[in-house]
Design a protein around this nucleic acid. Structure first.
Lengths: 230, 230
DNA sequence: ATCATATTAGTAAGTACTTACTCACCGTGT
DNA sequence: ACACGGTGAGTAAGTACTTACTAATATGAT
């Protein structure tokens, strides 16, 4: 069907160092798993793509399952788990509402764009019911819901926000940017339907969340509000 | 691992009518495909689950691929394709903003909840890059973006909505309820993180979209500074 | 109704090939 | 000299799909 080579820039003939090859196998495997899922990816194909015999895969990884979870551990540690809250703390302390939500969204959108493969892998494993997906969700997503939820609660006490269930607000807002990323990653890769920069998207999403789309002051000025620049 | 029988309420021993069996095979296969994906589902397993020999699968369907696309055609015609806009036309004509967005969301949420298997199938096929996923997206999703987009444009001309790219608004709003459904379907099936009725969710989402979460009458607004230059 | 006939639902046992995984064995650099 | 990166040739269990066949049922002429 397809032929997607990836790590075959091998002029320096064979014989990599062990760790190097292991790393390469992880990358090749991730690429394939993210494209075809777990059961859609064969160990033979992984080996081929890495330019190595199938036996090598099993020298470096106990079995296919182990390889899969190793990829996830590896990636989850290096990229996924760096708390998204750390970047926001300044804005949270300053109670800069727009800053908080803008950077939350922008940060996520940038991550998703640069780590498409991991997102696809995550989705595959979630659909297939792999245990790791649950782990990721429990430790990562729950954290965000709590942190952002707390911020919203605080701002409600300040009288700055309406009284809505904070979790619903988090769901609504994360829905905006996560669904935006998902659409671009799995449905509309060439962004025929909607093409915007991450900055623009984050800005509009944050503005909608905070102010909605309905004009509030129908009395005074008719149209100025937010200006749109493409 | 698991043992999920589905259509084995067979007291009337064997020998179904052809169409009946075909229907049963479609249902069983859909159930399995939605759970394990295309390559994760074997024809043997489908046959087993239907309580019939593997050969029967190939009597009714040319091959595994054909079975897959037959399921999708069948489902897409019967359930997916009924335009979600038809329900909204009354609200659109009345320019009932809340009505439009509330019922758009509620309708989708109810559909997603009652047709979880099809949603999972759709996601699997999109991830696996099956041609049908693209078809579904092109014909179904695009339609919604256009219809709702037009409504928003109209309301902007009325001076009722701010000037934002309508497509971004659609993306933001559809993100709220689609991501809500997706989360409940693939990540948080028992809704530990957030449990709300579809009516409640639709209401809050529509309200957030229209009015945001920030209080408008903030006379005591000290720091807003919602300016960020990208 | 009756019984031969045609049709259809169904199967057991294959075929040709792929799958994950193993093991005995190279060859080269330090 | 030997550890270490690497392979060729396996194996047993699956895989999608086929073949050659049986038996239940519908049909229709008598």
């Amino acid at each position: 069907m397809e032929s997607d080579l990836v790590g075959a820039a091998d002029n320096t003939i064979h014989r990599m160092a062990g760790d190097e090859r292991r790393q390469q196998l992880l990358e090749v495997a991730m690429h394939l798993f993210s494209k075809h899922g777990f059961s859609g990816t064969t160990t033979k194909r992984i080996a081929e793509e890495a330019g190595v015999s199938e036996a090598m895969v099993f020298k470096h990884f106990e079995n296919k399952d182990q390889l899969y979870t190793d990829i996830i551990d590896h990636k989850a540690c290096s990229l996924g788990m760096e708390s998204p809250m750390s970047v926001l703390s300044d804005f949270v302390e300053a109670k800069n509402d727009f800053g908080v939500f803008y950077h939350l969204a922008l940060n996520a959108l940038n991550h998703h764009r640069q780590d498409t493969e991991f997102i696809r892998l995550l989705l595959h494993s979630a659909l297939e019911g792999h245990a790791m997906a649950r782990t990721f969700f429990d430790s990562y997503v729950t954290t965000i819901y709590e942190s952002i939820g707390e911020y919203i609660e605080e701002r409600q006490k300040d009288g700055a926000f309406r009284e809505v269930n904070p979790k619903i607000v988090v769901r609504a807002f994360s829905g905006m940017f996560i669904h935006h990323s998902m659409t671009n990653i799995i449905w509309d890769k060439d962004q025929k339907l909607l093409k915007v920069s991450n900055e623009r998207a984050a800005k509009e999403f944050a503005t909608v969340l905070l102010d909605g789309i309905r004009k509030k002051d129908s009395s005074s000025d008719e149209q100025n509000s937010t200006q749109v620049q493409s």
